[in-house]
Amino acid sequence: MTKTCRVCDMDTDEPTAVALEHTNSCGGRVVHLCPPCRAEQGLIPLDQHPEGSDGFPLYEVSAP
């Protein structure tokens, strides 16, 4: 399924869900990024978030 990347606004056939967009008045949406933008931003895919993250964006941590 084609989605639009939130970072570069390009359509991608390989979207990665990285977060839930939270709103005050209604249900939010899933934020999708293309693979290059996800890697560049360092965001963890939503399906790899730990339990209790509530869908907020999580970033990969680099070893020092």
Rank of each mutant, 00 (worst) to 15 (best):
S25E: 13
T23V: 08
L33A: 04
S25Y: 07
V30Q: 01
A63Q: 15
G27I: 04
L20S: 05
C34S: 08
V31E: 03
L20G: 07
N24K: 05
V18P: 00
D11R: 13
E14L: 06
D47M: 10
P64M: 09
H49F: 05
M1D: 13
R38M: 14
P64H: 10
M1A: 13
G55D: 15
P15K: 02
D13Q: 04
T23G: 07
E60V: 11
V61K: 14
E51Q: 14
D47A: 10
H49M: 15
A63G: 13
L20C: 04
K3Q: 10
V18K: 03
Y59V: 02
V7S: 08
G55S: 04
I44N: 00
R29H: 10
T2M: 15
E14K: 10
R6P: 04
A19T: 10
L20E: 13
C37D: 03
D9A: 05
C5I: 09
Q48I: 15
D11Q: 08
I44P: 01
V31K: 13
P64Y: 09
S62W: 12
D47W: 13
P35H: 05
R6I: 02
P50D: 15
V18I: 14
T4G: 05
D11T: 06
G28M: 12
E21D: 08
C37A: 01
T12C: 05
V61T: 12
E51P: 15
S53W: 00
H22P: 03
V30F: 03
D47H: 14
K3V: 00
L33V: 05
P35R: 06
L43Q: 08
P15Y: 07
D9P: 00
E14W: 09
E40K: 10
V30H: 00
K3W: 09
P50T: 11
P57V: 04
E21N: 11
Q48A: 15
P50F: 11
F56G: 11
D13S: 05
P36F: 01
C5P: 01
G55R: 01
P35I: 15
T2Q: 13
G42M: 14
T12R: 09
S53T: 01
P35G: 07
S53K: 03
V61Q: 13
D13F: 03
P50Y: 09
M10A: 12
L43D: 05
C8D: 14
A63T: 12
S53C: 02
L33W: 02
H32A: 02
V30I: 13
R38I: 09
G42C: 12
I44H: 00
D47L: 09
P35S: 08
K3N: 02
Q48V: 14
V31F: 01
L46Q: 07
H49P: 08
P57W: 11
G27D: 06
M1C: 11
E40A: 09
P15V: 03
C37Y: 00
V30M: 04
F56I: 06
T16S: 07
V7E: 08
P15M: 02
P15D: 10
K3F: 08
E51L: 15
S53V: 00
V31I: 13
Y59Q: 02
H32R: 04
S25P: 01
A17G: 14
